Computed example of a mutant assay.
Amino acid sequence: MTRPLVALGASDPMAVLRGLEAALAGGPALLPVAEGAPALPTPPPADVPQRVALVVETSGSTGTGKRVALSSEALLAGAAAADAALGGPGVWLLALPTHYIAGLNVLTRSIAAGTTPVVVGPGHFDAGVFADAVDRLVVGPAAPRRYTSLVPVQLARVLDDPRATAALGRFDAVLVGGQATPVALRERARAAGIRVVTTYGASETSGGCVYDGTPLGTVRAELVDGELQLAGPMLAEGYLDDPERTAAAFTEREGHRWYRTGDAATIVDGRIRVTGRLDDVVISGGEKVPLGAVERIVRELPGQDGAVVTRRASGEWGEVPVVVTEHPVDLEVVRARVADALGRAARPAEVLVVDRMPMLASGKPDRRAVRTLADPPG
């Protein structure tokens, strides 16, 4: 059995909301599309398996394009687990694009709660516009709580604006995810009275399924050869029309279906700490250097919570880390801090200051563009 797949421009969040509501109720499956974004190499099919309610296109910040197929059951299981962890359903403020899973999560949770989200204005994120949108939030007896979801760069911009910071303090929880949230940024938010909840997940897990390091509800987490693997009712069906990639990313073990995240992590007393991508390693002078670990250290330096660490080819060392940032920082300070934590081989070779960090529409750094800045072809 199949059902039609309807592609819908994501520039109208309320249209996406209506399309998702119909899909969750058994109508045509929904494919939100970012207008103006490069198309994937193959067009989407006209029909999808009956179990598929939502298809999320993602190219990631470094990988190749894919279409993640999600069922109504997975999406609603994720929404229910999130509501339970947050203390109940609520009214949501949508500040994220609706062709990304984090923005779609806001819509799914609003549908499940029977509430209508308030949408921050279109265009680049603006703290003043965000504060105006918060003023439009109205809670009621059925859903008396306020929630929103941001990426770290949005949180930083809000905290730079006193009025927006005060508005953010009115939320019962502010979910922050999409990438690692620097400790200094979390501490700054909490000092301002913001109830931050850090989230971890992917399109393949129906979005965030780990809050503040703790798996939600029936979500299970295990480490297999250092890789974080997740199981639970929120897992995607797989990748649309791509059985080989599906087989590589999803595995059966101990009577459960597991998603191989590709992330390195530690689990201590049930709490997960993601330490970086397993494949995000350079060999510098014969030593393995995890770029994610270098980036976390750099981001703890004052003013560097948006810095990105990428790689550059080196005739002498093979590859070396390079820091790309919008704010100048002394290279020797960076090298000393990194060397103390990770050893001499991990020391960045350069700090490259840019006028504006290349960003994806999701608010994440565009790591392919950043790498091109640090190591231009030719």
Rank of each mutant, 00 (worst) to 15 (best):
A112T: 10
R337M: 10
V309L: 09
L20W: 02
G201M: 01
V322L: 11
T246N: 05
V197M: 12
K66F: 01
A113E: 02
P215W: 00
T115F: 04
A345Y: 05
N105K: 10
R109H: 11
M234S: 03
P348S: 07
L216M: 11
A156Y: 03
L168S: 05
V333M: 12
A192N: 06
P290Y: 00
T325C: 09
G226I: 10
V323W: 04
L104S: 02
L70T: 04
P182E: 06
A23Y: 05
L168Y: 01
L342S: 07
H327A: 08
T325G: 12
P290E: 00
G65I: 00
Y211T: 07
F130K: 08
V329W: 06
L17R: 14
P97M: 09
L185K: 00
E187D: 15
P43N: 13
A22M: 02
H99Y: 06
L168A: 12
G276N: 07
Y147A: 00
P162Q: 08
P122G: 14
R51V: 06
R368E: 08
D366I: 13
V120S: 02
G193F: 11
W92P: 04
F171C: 06
P243E: 10
D305H: 14
Y147I: 04
V219L: 09
T115G: 07
I272E: 09
A53P: 03
R51S: 00
A69D: 02
G90Q: 05
P43K: 14
D279M: 09
R163F: 00
V334G: 01
D161E: 14
V338I: 08
A102W: 00
A313M: 14
G78C: 11
I297G: 03
A173I: 14
A221M: 07
P233N: 05
A39N: 05
R356A: 15
I101Y: 05
T165M: 07
V129D: 10
L54K: 07
R344A: 01
L17Y: 10
G9F: 03
P32K: 08
A307S: 15
T261S: 14
V55D: 06
V139F: 12
E350T: 08
G26H: 07
V118P: 04
L107D: 04
P348V: 05
A74C: 09
A265F: 01
Y100K: 05
W317H: 11
P321M: 07
L96C: 08
L107W: 10
G343P: 10
V68D: 03
A95K: 11
R145Y: 08
P328T: 00
G65R: 07
A184R: 15
R296A: 15
L137W: 02
A102G: 13
P358L: 10
D12A: 15
L96I: 12
H256K: 07
P144A: 09
G363K: 07
G255L: 14
G276K: 13
A156Q: 11
